[in-house]
Each structure stands twice: as structure tokens, then as C-alpha cells.
Amino acid sequence: MPCPGGGACRRREIWNSCKRSKPMPDAENTQETLLEVNNIEVIYNHVILVLKGVSLSVPKGGITALLGGNGAGKTTTLKAISNLLHSERGEVTKGSIIYRGESVQDRDPAELVRKGVIQVMEGRHCFQHLTVEENLMTGAYTRRDGRAAVERDLEMVYDYFPRLKERRKSQAGYTSGGEQQMCAIGRALMSRPETILLDEPSMGLAPQLVEQIFGIVKSVNENEGVSFLLAEQNTNVALRFAHYGYILESGRVVMDGPAAELRENPDVKEFYLGMSDEGRKSFRDVRSYRRRKRWLA
């Protein structure tokens, strides 16, 4: 594919973006690509370079995981896509973001929601003083298809999250962390999305609850056909539920592949899953090894 930056593109970027566009060896990949991020660079406050050329693609009906440690750029990538960067003085300075063959850069977040892309932000961000049900209803803000359809979807959300139905009348600020996470995901579902950008759903939750929430995400994905782009630190859980994964490190994609392959990859095992079959390594080896990895990327 042609590089979006044209001839001005640096060689490595061309290589990077071309690598992304090769067909993925996974069962899901016969499906069309919904979202394509080509080589984006994001700068905060005009000086802080956070993303240094991230490319990825989200296929229709898949769960795509975006993995990496703190500060790797996961949240920034999601916000660049959903256009929530502006209110944080961030800017996409290079590259392109294409949704369904149409550039969606510099659009109003509301327009993206209408197109079917909605973000569930890190840390839940429920409307604290609104009741759970009112929170869910705000998700339907951009919809124009009438009250009956919205009511139907409300019931659907309650089917996925029975807990929310019990708490429907309480103020969201007084519900538990898990309930707030469900509320945030439910709110996004109320917009009838095609793609949900889900940022760190496991944050601050007990492992059991994380399992439960990922299970619900999986069933929403399968039953409603909603695609997910999932940013997650919890590599272990994410790779079990996702179909495809990208690993970010300091603003770059360092590795990508089908989730099953990533799970078996020795590097991923070592760096992100904390497992190694060669036993303890000396710190010096690890360091040189990491350095080599970075250069490769």
C-alpha cells in the first residue's frame, strides 16, 4: 500500500506501515477492516512526542488488543482515534486514521459516535450525580431512532449486566468500581456502536470481576457483532479474550500477531506474562536483549 506521507516518509515508517497492512494469518481476517491507523504521531502541548508512528488495523467483528506498560501510548492511541485528544491539548501531527475508508481525523467526537465509534475511557468516568439508568441513557444521546428502540437497547444492556438493573436508581458515584465499569461499557453500548474503544477495563478491579467483565465483552462481541479495540495492561487476560494483539512500547508498535501466537511467543511471555522457560536470566542479558528488540522495531 502507498505510504500516507508520500515520498517524505522515512524509510522505517514505510516499512512499518507496510508491515501492518499485510494480511493477518488468522481466521477472522477474511473480514473487512473497519479501522485503520497509519503511522500516527501524537504531540501533547506542542512539545511532548508521545506516539512515534503507530499503525494498526481493527477488523470487523474482532477483538483487537493493544498491550503495553504504563506510558507506552495505549490511551493516547485510543484518544487519537476517538478525537478526545483536543481537550487535552494533544494533536495528531502525522499519519492518518481511516474508518470505513474515510479519514476521521479532526472530526468532532460526536460525529464519530454517530459513525459508530465510541470510547469507554480509562477510569470509568461515569456521570457521578446521575443515576445508573440516566448514565446509560446519555449513551443514546446521538441517536435519532426513537424512544422504543432506545428502550429496547436499555433492556439489552440490562440483560448483559443484570447488576446494573438492580442499581438502576442509585447515583453512579455511589456504586462500586465494578458496577461503574459495567455502567461505562453499558453506556457505550447504548449508542449502538460498531466499534468500541475500550480503555483499561480491568483497572482497579478484582481478578474475578475482570474475568466477568471480559466475558461480557466477549459475548457482546459475538452476539451483537461489536468490534473492540482494547487497551489493556493485563496482558494475560487480554490475550485470552482477544483475537489479535499489538504490543506498544514507548510510542511504537514493537510486535503484533494473532493473540494465540503472541501468547506463545517467548518474548511476550518473558516481558509481559512474567514467564520464562529458561529459568532466571541475568539482568545483563535481559538488558541487551531488550535493546536489540527496540532496534528491531
Binding site: 461515569c126 449513551g139 453506556r187
Partner: peptide, 18 residues
Amino acid sequence: RAIRALGDDHQAALSVGI
């Protein structure tokens, strides 16, 4: 509802398309 939501959380309001 949107007005009240905006009062609670700007970012979240933006994210749902308000």
C-alpha cells in the same frame, strides 16, 4: 440529561457524543 452529564464529567460527555 446532557446538561447535567456535562456538569459531572466533561471528558465523558464528549466521549458519548455530547
